[in-house]
Amino acid sequence: MFGNYAGYIVPAYVLSALALVGLVVWSVLDYRARRSELAELERKGLKRRSQAGADRANG
């Protein structure tokens, strides 16, 4: 189907797929890591400044 050009076409598509999938995977992993880090910090009772203000306002 590709004639003798397969050696060029296949790597081009494979590398593109790897790059695009890699970008997505990296983003998703980063998201999950941040989420769990935030959950951990919130569990330890740390607050953001705006949240702390709201807490103080609510008493």
Binding site: L23, V24, S27, D30, R34, E37, L38, L46, R48
Partner: peptide, 27 residues
């Protein structure tokens, strides 16, 4: 559209990263 989706995702991660940083600094 791939870029737009990924950009939205990465912006979300960056915002979370800043929240974490401000929480740590607050603490």
């Amino acid at each position: 559209l791939f870029f737009i989706t990924l950009h939205a995702m990465n912006m979300r991660n960056e915002i979370l990263r800043r929240r974490i940083r401000s929480m740590r600094m607050n603490a």
